[in-house]
Amino acid sequence: MLHVLTHNILPVFAMLALGFALGRTGQVRHDEAGALNRVAFLVLQPALLLPLIAGQDWSSFRPAPIAAYAGSQVVMFALAYLVARKGFGRDHLESWLLAMATMFVNTLLYIWPISYLIYGEAAALPITAVVSWDSAVTFSFFIVTTDLMAGRSASRRAALARVARNPVLIAIALGAALNLAGLSLPAPVLTAMDFAGAGAAPLTLFALGVILSGHALLPSGPVIAISALKLLAFPALVWAGLHLTDTPTGWETLFILAAAGPSGAMAFALAMLYGVRTDVIAPVIIWTSTLSLLSLAWLA
């Protein structure tokens, strides 16, 4: 456990911690971190995802564990929304995003590199299944619903148009199309994408650390409750769901590892974009990122 923590998990977490430290000391400004995050989102994350999706053997995906994971997300979301809305009296949109933070994990930029360090190529298929589901379905759902509830768009068509222009979703769609057509990326393009994609996780985590450094760390009641739902209840739900399906041992281990990861930064990003208060969402991401160090090391 200690070896996994020091050699596989902490090196990835270090980029988030470094960004937080440099942000707190004023060495890197928030607007600079925002620019870094934009570059990572527009260029590096698509370069990471496209060859990953295009090169997958989709016939080896197991629909049962993916369905169990998705079902656990739905149950977790409903429970967390009620806790935030009814238990703590947060408004509708904030409760919506807090509930998102309990079941939308930072799989692409955090769990994926950690799982590869621990398990190597054995992690490719199960973690890619979670990344693909969350990126293509969960991610799209929350972008569209949050946009509509915030009243920023005049119509559903406008919201869907924005989703269609999302570079991460474009990369996933293009990768899936190439895969289904049996086409391979040209070797020079693949080399360029591998080179660029390698920087996606460290740059994004660093930028996130800088942005989060401007928020208070003191955990309030809602922060403790939402963090507990994310770190304890959601992995337990996924574990229970997987035991109701015919799930291979390797898939079960990696799906639970994914569920035990920290809250995805997208809930925080959407809150900032639509002017939703972040005094709970930001600490949730900070605390789940920190506390998940031990749970991930134990599970691995």
Rank of each mutant, 00 (worst) to 15 (best):
G26K: 03
P65N: 06
V12T: 01
L185K: 02
M193D: 01
G34Y: 03
T245H: 06
G19Q: 05
A78I: 15
I111K: 04
S155G: 09
S132Y: 09
D31H: 12
A21R: 04
A258C: 15
V280S: 02
N8V: 03
V168Y: 00
L296W: 06
G120A: 11
L208K: 04
A84T: 03
W287G: 05
F13S: 07
L52A: 09
G55C: 09
P126C: 06
Q56H: 03
L291I: 15
V43H: 09
V210N: 09
N106M: 12
H30T: 11
G26N: 06
A84M: 08
A216V: 09
A68Q: 10
A176D: 07
A123R: 13
S155H: 00
A67S: 11
F104K: 13
A101M: 15
I66R: 01
Y274M: 11
H215R: 13
W58S: 07
A14P: 07
F20E: 04
A176Y: 01
A267Y: 10
L79M: 07
I111R: 08
V223L: 11
P113V: 04
G250A: 12
A187S: 13
L203R: 05
M193P: 05
L273K: 14
T25G: 08
G71H: 06
V83S: 07
T245L: 11
T102E: 05
P167F: 01
W251R: 10
A176L: 12
A158Q: 12
A271C: 13
K86I: 04
I143V: 08
A124H: 10
L229Q: 10
A200F: 05
T138K: 02
L98H: 07
F41M: 12
L48T: 11
G71C: 07
P222S: 02
S184Q: 10
A124F: 04
I172M: 12
H3S: 12
Y81F: 14
I172D: 02
H30D: 13
L79A: 13
R156P: 06
G264E: 03
A259S: 08
L18A: 15
I111Q: 02
L185F: 04
A228C: 13
L273P: 08
A196Q: 04
S227I: 08
L299W: 15
V28W: 01
L174Q: 02
L160H: 00
L296K: 13
A40T: 04
A176C: 10
